[in-house]
Design a binder for these strands. Structure first.
Lengths: 153, 153
DNA sequence: CTTGATATTTAAGACAATTTAACTATTTGG
DNA sequence: CCAAATAGTTAAATTGTCTTAAATATCAAG
């Protein structure tokens, strides 16, 4: 049974995510429409970005689609020049997928443009509040990233 | 030109959102698959939940689809019993859309189940850290909600 | 070298979401 | 009361994504 402060923080995190989720969904839908990406492709791009490099079936597994579907979807991303597909030097059956410079740039710009409101939000705090919130987010980030890489540091 | 602490906080928020976004996308895709909802439907449900009540074209505008498409999509949600569609008393042309009790429950349960990792995350902090992070999130929430309702309080 | 398994690709078809166009019902403004 | 505008629905056609099935290429093991 979690104690009071744990419960309160959990609730706080859930509230924050609910509020943020709507904005995120809206932004993602707009970004997708603007760049002619499907939702799967957006999700794939975010994944590739995180992993830096992966293969076709990784993406299929992640999105719960067949690797045939993943292959077709990734082909479109290659055509658009946002990812590159190279033969793995270790196993010539597998194709290594990675973002191109253009792909990196597009995602980066997308985030910057889409989250201008974060700048507004940040500026609405007093300097001391800003430091307090920054410190808290730093803690959160560090722990969350630890969850992303469960083993082998 | 924003000052240093504003910039740092903005960067922190962006980093947090990037990390969170991947997890959110993954969770949303799973939730959609599980309940047989399209991405549009998920987004519609979140919107209806926020607005409490709205009409068909509101949803169309929000998702950037025609109201014909919105009408068809909402019809499915009615069939599944998660929203209800009633005639507006003020203007009999418009239909008021709102979540049913079942719809509320489903979204609530979905959040709770999907974000169990937030409990883990919360528990990984010391009590004093928990209070620090809670306080920061409370600040963030309050300001963000203020952005959601720009005018007429 | 041969057999079986794995990674990916391709083509064909199924299915779902969206648009277009036509239509009904209702309101608004002269 | 009438004409134009608005909100929503329906059907047909379009589009795009996914699955299935078959094929290719490579690896791993005997």
């Amino acid at each position: 049974m979690p104690d009071d402060t744990t419960q309160e923080l959990t609730q706080m995190l859930q509230d924050w995510i609910e509020v943020f989720m709507r904005r995120a969904m809206h932004n993602v839908l707009l970004f997708a429409k603007e760049h002619n990406f499907s939702m799967s492709q957006i999700s794939a791009l975010l994944n590739i970005r995180q992993r830096r490099v992966c293969n076709v079936s990784n993406i299929g597994d992640e999105l719960s689609i067949t690797s045939a579907a993943a292959s077709q979807m990734l082909e479109q991303l290659v055509q658009q020049g946002v990812i590159e597909r190279t033969e793995s030097p270790h196993d010539r059956r597998v194709k290594q997928i990675a973002l191109t410079e253009k792909g990196h740039q597009m995602i980066h710009d997308g985030f910057r443009a889409r989250y201008a409101w974060l700048g507004e939000l940040a500026a609405s705090f007093t300097p001391s509040e800003q430091e307090q919130v920054s410190a808290a987010l730093r803690l959160l980030l560090e722990r969350t990233r630890r969850l992303d890489v469960p083993d082998r540091g």
